[in-house]
Computed example of a mutant assay.
Amino acid sequence: MSIQRALKIHNQDKWTWLYIAFIILFVSFLFALTIGVLIPGDEKALVTGFSYIFVYMFVMGVVGFNQTFAYAMGMSLRRTDYWMSIAIMGLRSCLLFTILFVLLAWVEEWTHGWGNQLIFFNFPYLNDGNIFEQFAVYFIAFVNFFFLGLFISIFTKRYGLRGLLTLGLTVLFSITLAVLLATYFEVWTDLFHWVVQHTAFQLSIWLIPLALLYMIVSFLIIRRTAV
C-alpha cells in the first residue's frame, strides 16, 4: 500500500524522529538533576528543561516534511498518502512522549523529586489531575506543536516566503487587535479569573479544534503543493 511505502521513508530516519529527542531530554534532565543536588536543604528545584521536547515536536513538523516530501513525490506517492504517513509518524511520536512523560512524572512523585525535591516531569498544575487528564494535557499539547510545524512547512512550500510573511502579519495584526479590544473593554481581569478557575485538562480541550484546524488546512494545501 502507498501509505506503508511512505511510512518506510520516515521509519528509516529514527535519529530525527526519536533518538535526538531522547538525547535532548536525557541531557536536560541530567542538567536539572545536577542543579537539584547543588541546592541545599529541602528547597524544591523547579526546572522546565523538558519543554524542549515540545519545541522539538514543532521542529519535527517542519523538518520532517522538508526532508522527505520531494523524495516521496519522486517515488510517485500520492500526496494524500504522504500526508497520512507523516501524520501517523507525528501522532506516534506524540503518543510515545506522552506515555514517557506521564510515567516519569509518576516516578518523580514516588521518589520525592528523584531524592532531592527536583521538579522536572511532575509539573505543578499540568500534573494536578488524574492519569487520564495528565495524558490528555500532554498529548494534546504535543499534537498541537507538531501539526503547527507541519502546517507552516506545507504552507511555506505552497505559497513561498511571501505567503508565510503575509500569514504572519495577518496573525500578528489579529492578536494586536484582540489585545487592544480586550484592553479597551477592560476584560483582562475577567479573562484571568476564567483561566485560573479551569484546570490544565479543561483548558487543553480548547486546543483540540486548533489542532484539527492545522490538520485539515495542511491536508487541503498539500494536495495542490508542487515539489
Results as ranks from 00 to 15, higher is better:
I222N: 08
I221R: 01
G149N: 11
G168I: 01
F132M: 14
N130E: 05
I140F: 00
Y214E: 04
I216T: 14
F139D: 15
L212Y: 09
F139A: 15
E133Q: 15
D190I: 15
R223D: 07
F147V: 12
D190V: 14
I140T: 09
T170D: 09
F151S: 13
V143G: 08
A200Q: 07
T199W: 00
R224F: 01
A200I: 01
L180D: 13
T225L: 04
F151L: 14
Y214H: 13
M215S: 00
A141S: 11
N130W: 02
K157E: 03
F147H: 08
L165T: 10
W194R: 11
M215I: 03
Q202G: 11
I152A: 12
V187C: 09
F192C: 06
L161G: 10
I140N: 01
I208N: 12
V137L: 03
S153I: 10
A182Q: 14
F151T: 13
Y214N: 14
A200D: 09
G129V: 00
L161E: 10
I216S: 13
S218Q: 07
F173R: 06
A211I: 07
L212N: 09
Q197N: 13
I222D: 02
I131D: 09
I152D: 05
F135Q: 06
V171C: 10
Q197I: 01
L150S: 02
L210C: 11
T189A: 09
H198T: 00
I131A: 10
G160M: 07
E186F: 11
S204E: 05
I175Y: 12
S174H: 02
A178P: 07
T156D: 03
Q202R: 06
A182R: 15
F173W: 02
N144Y: 04
L164F: 03
S204N: 04
V187E: 09
I221N: 05
L191W: 07
G163Q: 02
T170P: 05
Q134R: 15
V195C: 06
F151N: 12
V137A: 06
R162V: 14
L207W: 02
F192Y: 08
T189P: 12
L213C: 06
S174V: 15
R158I: 05
I208M: 10
V137Q: 04
W188S: 13
G168L: 00
G168S: 07
L207G: 12
L180Y: 15
L212V: 14
F151Y: 14
A211D: 08
I131G: 07
L164E: 00
N130C: 13
Y214V: 12
P209I: 11
R162M: 10
N130K: 05
M215N: 01
L172T: 14
I205R: 01
Y159W: 02
L213E: 03
G160Q: 03
I221W: 02
H198I: 00
L172W: 08
A226I: 09
I205W: 02
L220Y: 12
F155W: 09
F151R: 14
A182G: 14
T166P: 00
S204H: 03
V196E: 08
V217W: 05
L169I: 02
F145R: 08
L177M: 00
R162Y: 03
V196K: 07
L148W: 01
T183V: 04
W188R: 10
V171R: 12
T170C: 05
V179S: 13
V137R: 05
K157L: 03
L213H: 00
Y214R: 11
V217P: 06
I221G: 02
I152M: 06
G160W: 00
T225H: 11
R158T: 08
S174K: 10
L165W: 09
L180C: 07
G160T: 11
